Simulated scan of single mutants.
Amino acid sequence: MNAPLPKQPVFRFAPSPNGQLHLGHALSAILNHDMAKATSGRFLLRIEDIDLTRCTPEFEAGIYDDLGWLGLSWETPVRRQSEHLDLYRQALGRLIDRGLVYPAFLTRGAIKTAVAAFEAKGKAWPRDPDGAPLYPGEERKLSAAGWQRMLAAGKPHAWRLDMDKAIAELDAPLTWQETGAGPNGETGQIAADPAAWGDVVLSRSDAPSSYHLAVTMDDAMQGVTHVVRGRDLYHATAVHRLLQRLLDLPEPVYHHHRLIHGPDGRKLSKSNKDTGIAAFREAGKTPDDVRALIL
């Protein structure tokens, strides 16, 4: 019997059209493009426009212009998250049916007030790897009938993953294969710790999906085998691996690359237009100049 052919590597660059691309995006896009080329793989572009209030057609057009100017080419048609909202709703529905998520009714303001009152007593409220306070999770104590009444009343809510229940579903340790490096140089087989994130949001009243759920579903639907992205998303991989296991999705290889910082030492932001790819182009720089700056 002939051995099965190795799976063709699939890489993707997935920006959000809510601002101009900067040098950090250029690094991620170029790495994905070049790694795909080096492995005879595929390079995909995905537009993560789930935030319909901030994403605009103008910024999306700018993404195509910037990447084209950098000399990158990608497969078409481009996947746009706003065209796949039913997919995310269906995935969320599967988790709701299994009792792994619950409706959370506390507003950001209410959470902030609760945390401030707690910490005023000299205690530290637990926080996630990004420094945000973990959700109190009071709704976990409600009966299904209790939160059904609140939903029927039209109270704004988010759907949050019940992290303890989700982890209890696992039948084996949760890990991922890292070929890049974490914040402290971690590489190889990494132990995932989704509990550090608490009860993460999977959907809100004003958005059909969170980043965590949408990116996990998109990577699976597009057959992505290698996720190459910035180190700021290193710890979030634990949540994505948990969702992959819960939804019976394939596990890609992960490669987290260094971040590019501005003169103030902070991670680049789309609001820093002086580091935007378009600004370099307008200043007469070449794609090779940009590569020399970041590679």
Rank of each mutant, 00 (worst) to 15 (best):
N2G: 00
A3G: 00
A3D: 06
P4C: 03
L5E: 15
L5P: 08
P6D: 02
K7E: 10
Q8K: 14
Q8T: 14
V10W: 07
V10H: 09
F13T: 03
A14W: 05
H25A: 05
H25L: 03
L27G: 02
A29P: 08
L31G: 01
A36V: 11
D51H: 10
F59Q: 11
D65G: 00
E75N: 09
P77K: 02
V78Y: 05
R79L: 07
Q81T: 00
E83I: 01
L87Q: 13
R89A: 01
L92I: 01
L95I: 01
G99I: 03
V101T: 12
V101I: 04
Y102C: 06
Y102Q: 14
P103F: 03
A104Y: 08
T107A: 04
K112V: 06
A114H: 11
K121N: 13
K123E: 15
A124M: 12
P126V: 11
P129S: 11
P129A: 09
A132P: 00
P133N: 08
P133I: 00
Y135F: 05
Q148S: 10
Q148C: 03
R149D: 10
L151A: 02
P156Y: 01
A158E: 04
L161E: 03
D162N: 15
M163V: 13
A166E: 05
A166F: 07
A166G: 09
I167S: 03
L170H: 03
D171C: 03
L174F: 05
W176C: 14
W176Q: 11
N184H: 09
P194Y: 06
L202P: 05
S203Q: 14
S205E: 13
V215I: 07
M217H: 06
M217V: 13
Q222A: 13
V224C: 09
V227S: 05
D232R: 13
L233T: 04
Y234L: 11
Y234P: 01
V239I: 15
V239A: 08
L242N: 07
L242C: 12
L243D: 10
Q244D: 14
L246P: 04
L247W: 02
Y254G: 01
I260M: 00
H261I: 06
P263V: 12
G265W: 07
K267D: 12
L268C: 11
K270S: 09
D274K: 13
T275V: 11
T275K: 14
A279L: 02
F280H: 12
R281T: 02
E282N: 07
A283H: 00
K285R: 11
T286A: 05
D288R: 13
D288S: 11
D288I: 00
D289F: 09
L295G: 12
